[in-house]
């Protein structure tokens, strides 16, 4: 023990004494450009390793005919031509757009209503606000498994409730019917996404001065007019950012559909991400999977550009 202690103290001394003066590293970092570089380095490494490298590797993969265990050769745009002519890919594109559009509309409408309600004063406000976030906090895979059980063809608790409430007379085949399967994944996505909208929009609402509502009330605006002419225009920049995030996430959604339906029945809920996974990992056609993943890119880029331009416009209002 004694020797360990003395070694440690010697090491400490050796490190400490030169640092008391201005060491060469300190002098190097006095330069702001070098300091900035050092500060950015961890982020750059992380982004490079986990975003940029896979992205470029994906591009390289997509122009070969690599399969699992088989090194590929350069085949140019063959994979893109293949998926362009692939009927299932068309279904996946359509499904993804429908899924994203419908869920975004519902998440925005429900999230906004919830935010407006939560922005009022009532007892237990703080508790409810925290409670609302639950679906967002629970890992998606876990909550989706719970939903899967609720949608179960035999044990569906939803069917049981609807049946006993006298609303339905035969059981609904939630995940087995192509249309109902899409409805189901949309329901779960909306359920999971509403809290994010509600809390973010609530934060936005709280930046709007209550005096503006009072001024508008005195100016003769009724509740709806106050929302339309005061609340909504002032909330718009925040709303656009939230929608932007949400659209990107929903467009590339994977876990929820993978757990709930696996893309089925008969590709009725197949999305970009699930199809890319199925083809690339499931079937082993790595290059085609990569090509599908890349196909999302231009669509999302377009969405992002349009929204960013719009956000900038509303911000300069």
């Amino acid at each position: 023990m004694a020797t360990v202690g003395s070694v440690a103290s010697v090491a400490f001394k050796q490190q400490y004494i030169p640092a008391a003066k201005r060491g060469p590293i300190t002098r190097l970092l006095e330069d702001e450009r070098r300091l900035a570089f050092c500060l950015m380095l961890p982020t750059v490494v992380l982004l490079g390793l986990f975003i940029a490298y896979p992205f470029f590797n994906g591009i390289l993969l997509a122009v070969t005919d690599t399969r699992v265990g088989v090194p590929g050769h350069f085949v140019g745009m063959d994979n893109f031509v293949k998926i362009w002519n692939d009927d299932i890919f068309h279904v996946a594109v359509w499904n993804t757009c429908l899924y994203t559009f419908v869920t975004t509309v519902f998440k925005l409408a429900l999230g906004l209503s919830l935010a407006l309600l939560l922005n009022r004063h009532f007892r237990g406000k703080a508790f409810i606000r925290a409670f609302i976030l639950l679906p967002f906090i629970i890992p998606t895979v876990l909550s989706t498994f719970a939903w899967k059980w609720m949608f179960d063809p035999t044990f569906s608790v939803l069917n049981w409730m609807l049946f006993h409430a006298g609303i339905i007379h035969t059981r609904i085949n939630w995940l087995g019917d192509p249309v109902m399967a899409m409805v189901s994944v949309i329901i779960v996505n909306v359920w999971r996404g509403v809290p994010f909208y509600a809390i973010s929009l609530l934060a936005g609402l709280q930046t709007i001065s209550p005096e503006l509502h009072e001024a508008a009330a005195i100016d003769g605006a009724r509740a709806w007019a106050r929302f339309r002419h005061v609340t909504w225009p002032l909330l718009l920049p925040v709303t656009l950012v939230i929608v932007l995030f949400s659209v990107i996430q929903t467009f590339a959604d994977f876990q929820l559909v993978y757990v709930l339906t696996g893309g089925g029945p008969a590709n009725a809920t197949q999305l970009f991400a699930t199809y890319a996974y199925q083809l690339g990992i499931g079937t082993g056609l790595l290059s085609q999977g990569a090509a599908i993943s890349l196909a999302i890119f231009p669509i999302l880029l377009l969405v992002v550009i349009v929204q960013l331009v719009y956000i900038r416009r509303t911000e300069t209002l």
Binding site: E211, E214, A215, I218, G220, H229
Partner: peptide, 17 residues
């Protein structure tokens, strides 16, 4: 309600839209 009282108010922080 305020709108039916035929009043106008000027607020401390102006409350301009």
């Amino acid at each position: 309600p305020p709108m039916d009282r035929d009043i106008a108010m000027v607020f401390q922080n102006y409350a301009l839209y």
